[in-house]
Simulated scan of single mutants.
Amino acid sequence: MHVPELRTGDAGPGPRGSLFTVEFELEGQQFVALNGGPHFKFNEAISIAVTCETQEEVDELWSKLTADGGSEGRCGWLKDRFGLSWQIVPSALPRLLQHPDPATAARVMQAMMQMKKLDIARLEEAAR
């Protein structure tokens, strides 16, 4: 049975009629979110990773997700206005970090560690 959202009844948890679960889709991936109430808050143990092909995609997602109270983290991580952690990762990053030359991979890692929003051109420059 497909239920896009479920609201609480008289037995709770939470006030009657409050949102308990909701189903949604991002880029073809199905998710179910559970309202944990004040007892269960978001933390970095759970994040949504998004792979981007271009710097424009990275920039757009970064801007939208940090807007209205979101915050930047290090190494491509951010929190949206609700406190949910996201990883905005250019598709070039894994390739560069797995370079056959360990010194090249180390330079890429060092460059990434200095960034908040990941910059594909700077990562590729570090690899050269």
Results as ranks from 00 to 15, higher is better:
2 H>C: 12
3 V>C: 13
4 P>G: 09
9 G>N: 09
12 G>P: 04
12 G>E: 06
13 P>L: 03
13 P>C: 12
13 P>T: 06
14 G>K: 04
14 G>S: 03
15 P>T: 12
15 P>M: 05
16 R>C: 01
17 G>E: 11
18 S>K: 03
18 S>G: 09
18 S>Y: 03
19 L>Q: 05
19 L>D: 00
20 F>W: 12
21 T>M: 09
21 T>N: 12
21 T>A: 09
21 T>L: 05
22 V>I: 14
22 V>K: 08
22 V>Q: 15
23 E>Y: 07
23 E>N: 14
23 E>P: 00
24 F>I: 02
26 L>F: 08
26 L>M: 14
27 E>G: 11
28 G>K: 01
29 Q>N: 11
31 F>V: 05
33 A>W: 12
35 N>V: 00
35 N>T: 01
36 G>T: 08
36 G>M: 10
37 G>F: 01
38 P>M: 13
40 F>H: 11
40 F>Q: 10
43 N>A: 10
43 N>S: 14
43 N>W: 05
46 I>K: 00
46 I>M: 14
48 I>F: 13
48 I>K: 10
48 I>M: 11
50 V>K: 14
50 V>C: 13
50 V>L: 15
51 T>K: 12
53 E>L: 09
54 T>G: 01
54 T>S: 14
55 Q>L: 08
57 E>G: 04
57 E>Y: 07
57 E>L: 06
57 E>Q: 15
59 D>K: 03
60 E>T: 13
61 L>M: 11
63 S>F: 07
66 T>F: 09
67 A>M: 06
68 D>C: 05
68 D>S: 11
69 G>H: 10
69 G>E: 06
70 G>M: 03
71 S>C: 05
73 G>K: 13
73 G>C: 08
74 R>Y: 11
75 C>H: 06
75 C>Q: 07
75 C>I: 08
76 G>E: 06
76 G>M: 03
77 W>L: 12
78 L>H: 06
79 K>M: 04
79 K>I: 00
80 D>K: 01
81 R>T: 06
81 R>E: 04
84 L>F: 11
84 L>P: 12
86 W>M: 02
87 Q>N: 10
87 Q>G: 04
87 Q>I: 03
87 Q>E: 09
89 V>P: 03
89 V>H: 00
90 P>S: 05
91 S>C: 09
91 S>G: 04
92 A>L: 01
93 L>P: 12
93 L>R: 07
93 L>K: 06
93 L>G: 08
93 L>I: 02
95 R>S: 15
97 L>S: 05
97 L>Y: 02
98 Q>P: 01
98 Q>S: 15
100 P>Y: 00
100 P>S: 08
103 A>L: 10
103 A>Y: 00
103 A>Q: 13
105 A>K: 05
105 A>Y: 08
107 R>H: 07
107 R>L: 07
108 V>D: 01
108 V>P: 01
108 V>A: 10
109 M>T: 09
109 M>L: 13
110 Q>G: 05
111 A>W: 04
111 A>K: 14
112 M>A: 15
112 M>G: 08
113 M>S: 11
114 Q>D: 10
116 K>G: 15
120 I>V: 15
120 I>H: 05
120 I>P: 02
121 A>T: 13
122 R>T: 12
124 E>C: 02
125 E>G: 00
127 A>N: 02
127 A>D: 04
127 A>G: 05
127 A>P: 02
128 R>P: 00
128 R>N: 10
